[in-house]
């Protein structure tokens, strides 16, 4: 065989093996979370928005410092509004950015005063003020949260409490169990969003709604 033919055939072979491996991998990937891992999706008292009796639950693992999470925030809100009463969203903490660990504790402390949603909305809207080069600045974040009407002293006590630390640790542990390596990570009724994108998420929710109702 001449050298050029050899080169081209081997290159083609490697290409074909790659395409084949991708196809096999995709076909074997499960579309839902293994049943023994399902409990990791839930935590009682996690912040929720949407219909209480909703049969479709979006679980979102998020980091308040994550830009994509901030961009997805209104989109997820739209989904909850679109399927009024049928869809709810549960927020789980996944502080993957440096410094975010303290910021999610502050969010949880705000949640204890029933102010999670205003607080997270505020943090998302003003990310450039407290996130620099993907590093969270907890002091600036706290100053931001304190512009809301809530009990400041209670907030200070709570975010440094062991109770809040436990809650965050549970979310981080569950994130590890579910292999959450990037934020936002969505699960709709136990099915992970495999191909990331808003349209894909909307489709996953649409399918879950038509299945449940």
């Amino acid at each position: 065989m001449n050298n050029k033919t050899l080169f081209i055939s081997v290159a083609a072979l490697i290409g074909l093996v790659f395409i084949g491996a991708v196809a096999i991998y995709k076909s074997q990937q499960s579309t839902s979370v293994a049943s023994e891992l399902l409990p990791a999706l839930e935590r009682i008292d996690a912040p929720v928005k949407g219909g209480k009796q909703a049969k479709v639950t979006i679980v979102e693992f998020f980091d308040p410092a994550c830009g994509t999470c901030s961009q997805f925030y209104p989109l997820v809100n739209n989904l909850v509004k679109k399927y009024q009463g049928k869809v709810k969203v549960v927020m789980r903490y996944a502080p993957l950015h440096q410094g975010s660990n303290d910021v999610v504790k502050m969010l949880e402390a705000a949640h204890l005063q029933g102010q999670f949603w205003p607080a997270v909305e505020l943090l998302f809207a003003n990310q450039q003020r407290w996130v620099e080069h993907h590093v969270s600045n907890p002091t600036s974040a706290l100053a931001g949260i304190k512009t809301l009407t809530l009990d400041h002293e209670q907030l200070d006590r709570d975010w440094q409490s062991s109770k809040v630390a436990k809650t965050i640790a549970k979310d981080i542990q569950d994130g590890k169990t579910l292999k959450v390596r990037a934020t936002p990570q969505f699960f709709v009724n136990g099915k992970p969003l495999i191909i990331f994108g808003y349209d894909e998420l909307a489709k996953l929710v649409e399918d879950a709604v038509s299945e449940a109702y």
Partner: peptide, 28 residues
């Protein structure tokens, strides 16, 4: 020539495998 070609096969396979793990399996 054959040895250099073999090196190319190794490098290309390594490239393809690393891309498979990062882009398809999405390992960090």
């Amino acid at each position: 020539w054959n040895l250099v070609f073999l090196v190319w096969v190794l490098a290309t396979s390594g490239t393809v495998i690393s891309l498979f793990f990062s882009e398809i399996v999405q390992l960090p």
